[in-house]
């Protein structure tokens, strides 16, 4: 029963993250939203892991955290460079890849 609470929280966080990724224009907020999604998944992983009774889920969550840290490093670096070159942090102003 308790598992459901965690899964609902997880789904909620994930949805908030998706909304942020799709709706916010600020690149930093985009990154934050991605973090929210990741943490939503982490909660699900840990909760499921505890329910099943092994530590694989927790290990996986740890890996996700480590990867997320690296991702934030790279992401913020990219945003900084984009800002220096285009004076913009809004993602809709950056469309160099337009075909």
């Amino acid at each position: 029963m308790k598992l459901n609470f965690f899964l609902v929280l997880s789904a909620f966080l994930f949805s908030v993250g998706i909304y942020g990724v799709l709706a916010r224009r600020n690149a930093v907020m985009l990154l934050l939203s991605v973090e929210l999604m990741l943490n939503g998944v982490n909660i699900a992983l840990v909760a499921m892991g505890v329910m099943v009774g092994n530590i694989t889920g927790q290990i996986f969550a740890l890996f996700v955290i480590a990867v997320a840290a690296a991702e934030v490093g790279v992401g913020l670096g990219l945003i900084l460079l984009v800002y220096r070159n285009k004076q913009a942090v809004n993602v809709d102003e950056v469309d160099l890849m337009k075909g």
Partner: peptide, 18 residues
Amino acid sequence: ALRSIQTGQVQQYAGVLI
């Protein structure tokens, strides 16, 4: 023909992905 869907807008890509 496919060029038109490459808008360069990150959020459209993310939307398609999700």
